[in-house]
Amino acid sequence: MEDRLIVTASPHIRDTSTTRGLMGNVVIALLPAVLAAGLIFGVQALVLVAVTTLACVAFEYIYEKLLKKPNTVGDLSAVVTGIILALNMPVSMPLWIAVVGAFIAIVITKQLFGGLGYNFANPALVGRIVLFLGFTSRMTAYVYPDMAVDALASATPLAVADKTTLPLLDVFLGFHGGMMGEVCVLAILLGFAYLVATRTIQATIPVTIVATVFVLTALNTGSAYTALIECMSGGLLFGAVFMATDYVTSPFTTKGKLFYGVFIGLITFLIRHFGSMNEGMSYAILLGNLMTPWFNAWGHQTPLGYKKAKKAKKGGAE
């Protein structure tokens, strides 16, 4: 029996999960959104995903090769970044701009800060924001599918003033303009179900974000239908499922996740309803990423049996 005694430091709860396995699950979960983009917007959508993903992998490989660092391309994190970044673009995006976004995501945001595990924000998220600021006209040059109904033939759902006139099914299936990965709610929900079923992510963050936006929008507009349409529009669902749940930049405690989700939902609501733009999810997630250390601290769990030490009295110990 003595030979079987192993003395180790915590943590003592372990599993067989690997970075490659977790990232592989995310890639699988993203496939419905990629397929939906191809069906709705055509072959060009698949070309954009392929080029952006290959660029992300190439930049990671070249950077690590030049600096003689261990090659991490095999962990699939660059593949995930490339797919998410591509799905955050309109199908009309020129390929060279997509490559610029890949460089910003992989080299600037990820590798210059030390690689996977050290980035301050989601790399794909930063790539999207920089492209939006630098190439605004390109990032808003939406393509509208032929099957779109009149109300959605020349405007995204968030740009329609009276959202009660929008057909729920068309919004759900993605028959409207927008970023490639955010239009089809069905595809996003399929990916979300897979991630939760495989325990790749917890449902806490996505559910909290969407619930916060729904409740605040319903109270502000007085219409649950408008709130539902708004939750299904823009980058809210895609960002909540695939970007806000990034392991490195999101809280790890349950309370922290709740703080984080409510914060992102609140900022998104405020930008959409009181800001100068229809969409606000990207900026809300970025602020949430920067606030993650505080959310972790506020949500820190008290160890079992812990008692706060009493302060010594003035003039000497008790």
Rank of each mutant, 00 (worst) to 15 (best):
E230K: 09
S282A: 15
C184N: 14
G178T: 07
V183Q: 00
N278P: 05
A244F: 10
F214P: 15
Y260T: 02
I205S: 09
F274V: 01
V215K: 14
I271N: 04
T212G: 15
F269G: 10
F238V: 07
F274S: 09
F269R: 01
P206M: 07
T254W: 08
A227L: 00
G275R: 00
G222V: 08
K257S: 02
A193L: 14
G191V: 07
S250R: 03
M179E: 08
A197S: 06
I264A: 09
I267W: 11
A224E: 03
I209F: 04
Q202N: 10
F252K: 08
N220K: 11
G275S: 00
I201F: 04
Y247I: 08
S233I: 14
Y247S: 08
G178M: 05
I205N: 06
A203H: 07
L189G: 00
C231T: 11
G191Q: 02
F238I: 12
T204R: 02
H273Q: 13
Q202G: 12
F242Q: 07
T200N: 03
I229T: 00
A218K: 15
V196C: 07
T212P: 14
T226R: 02
V262K: 06
F269Q: 09
V213R: 14
M180T: 09
L190Y: 01
V210M: 13
T221F: 05
K257I: 10
M232Q: 12
F238K: 13
N278V: 13
Y247K: 02
M180V: 07
G275W: 05
G234P: 15
A224D: 03
V185K: 09
V207A: 11
T245N: 09
V215H: 15
F263Y: 10
F263D: 11
V196Y: 10
Y225Q: 01
L219N: 13
V213I: 14
G280F: 09
P251N: 12
G234M: 14
V241K: 03
S276H: 08
D246I: 01
P251K: 12
G256H: 07
T221K: 10
T212M: 14
V248F: 08
V248P: 04
L189W: 10
N220L: 04
I188V: 03
S276D: 10
I209L: 10
T198V: 05
N278L: 15
S250Q: 01
Y260P: 03
N220R: 11
L190E: 05
I267Q: 12
R272S: 02
A193G: 10
V207P: 08
V210W: 12
A197V: 06
F252M: 08
G256Y: 06
